[in-house]
């Protein structure tokens, strides 16, 4: 019995210590804003983290928009409400699917790569040698990646939403014969910029912060062995995905839910 209590206590202390280190790490990274000389480092990471994720985000957004239109049409048409297809596709994408799916894709593509890259630098003593040269790896390695992730996810989310709406149009209007005018006008009438679009972007900013934070921290804090890198990469994807889904519920409840 005592052994179980000790194990539980040790696990709790370990978890608290990791959360504490991750918190300090986040604060230190946030205050390392890209400086004038660090601008090119940030730009390079924007390319690696953001631009290189565009293809997967566009393709996924297109297919999700197409599937939404297909599924939505079969349900709406039975109520004679197929003209509301544009509204359904746009609201689903802007409020939920674009921020959440883009963040999940981002965690899988960019998050895992960030963890592996920083982890390998740690395993090959590159971070330590940088410290010994008198350069803070938090400023040089972590901060540009952190800010690149935080800024690029909202942009990717907007791209996902736009392409998704276009995919919905392709299936709904061009293939299934929904009237073009009603597809766009219903969407225009029902989608509010502040309540829907802005809230979606706020969600993606939160997801960008959390996913990138988890990814860079897991890379920086891992055990520097091949097994350690593999575990940390897996942890990044699992923790980031769960965090996105959990936070999405909380944010949705705060933004759209009438819990009172």
């Amino acid at each position: 019995m005592t052994r179980y209590i000790a194990t539980l206590g040790r696990a709790t202390l370990d978890t608290l210590s990791t959360i504490g280190r991750a918190g300090l790490f986040l604060i230190q990274s946030i205050f390392c804003l890209p400086s004038r000389e660090g601008f090119h480092l940030w730009l390079r990471q924007m390319h690696f983290v953001g631009v290189m994720s565009v293809a997967i985000v566009l393709v996924s957004g297109l297919f999700i928009g197409m599937v939404l239109a297909l599924q939505g049409f079969t349900i709406l048409v039975s109520f004679g409400a197929d003209e509301a297809l544009g509204q359904m596709v746009a609201l689903s994408l802007v409020r939920e699917l674009a921020p959440v799916v883009a963040a999940l894709l981002f965690a899988g593509r960019a998050g895992s790569a960030l963890t592996a890259e920083i982890g390998l630098m740690k395993a090959t003593e590159q971070l330590t040698s940088m410290e010994m040269i008198g350069v803070d790896p938090l400023r040089r390695i972590v901060a540009p990646r952190f800010w690149a992730g935080f800024i690029s996810l909202p942009i990717l989310t907007v791209l996902f939403g736009v392409v998704g709406i276009w995919g919905g149009y392709l299936v709904g209007v061009d293939w299934l014969g929904v009237y073009k005018g009603s597809y766009w006008s219903n969407m225009q009438d029902s989608v509010d910029f502040v309540d829907d679009v802005l809230n979606g972007v706020i969600k993606s900013l939160v997801f960008g912060l959390v996913v990138t934070w988890i990814a860079v921290f897991q890379g920086y804090d891992l055990v520097p062995t091949s097994e350690g890198i593999s575990r940390a990469t897996t942890r990044t994807v699992v923790y980031a995905s769960l965090a996105v889904l959990g936070l999405d519920f909380v944010l949705t409840a705060l933004m759209f839910g009438d819990l009172g």
């Binding site: 003593e125 590159q126 010994m132 008198g134």
Partner: peptide, 19 residues
């Protein structure tokens, strides 16, 4: 500490070159 390290150089066993 980082300022002090600018006055130091260290050769690592693995080389630790930036890849």
């Amino acid at each position: 500490l980082f300022t002090l390290r600018r006055r130091m150089g260290m050769l690592f066993q693995s080389g630790a070159l930036f890849s």
